[in-house]
């Protein structure tokens, strides 16, 4: 296994995530796509650390930080989805159209 396999995997995950964010109609789906993108970055960090800078811990530490950040973000995100679901009774983004202009 070389670095390039890992980078290809992370690039693929990132692209799938970005595609999902741009095309999904369901808010939960968009949230999941964002998580995919975050994990693509994690794979990058750990793979770079393992193959390019084997003496360090910085990459692995960063990955742990990012997992924590992602958890914090998704908690707030789901709470906001709950809040809007109570108001609008829909999880589809095209129904969120009170604000425009």
């Amino acid at each position: 296994m070389t670095l390039s396999y890992y980078l290809a995997l992370s690039g693929l995950l990132f692209t799938i995530g970005l595609f999902g964010v741009l095309t999904r109609r369901n808010v939960i789906g968009i949230l999941m796509s964002i998580e995919l993108m975050l994990n693509a970055a994690n794979i990058n960090f750990v793979a770079f650390n393992r193959f390019l800078y084997p003496g360090q811990y910085a990459g692995q530490l960063n990955a742990i930080f990012i997992i924590t950040l992602a958890a914090a973000e998704v908690v707030v995100g789901l709470a906001l989805v709950m809040a809007i679901y109570k108001n609008i009774k829909s999880v589809y983004v095209e129904d969120y159209n009170i604000l425009k202009g």
Binding site: F14, I34, M37, A41, L80, A83, N87, L99
Partner: peptide
């Protein structure tokens, strides 16, 4: 609620891109 969810979705996306 709608302003917040739009802010959150765009914010989450930009954070993910930044982290990458």
């Amino acid at each position: 609620a709608e302003g917040a969810i739009k802010y959150f979705l765009m914010g989450g996306l930009s954070t993910a891109v930044t982290i990458y």
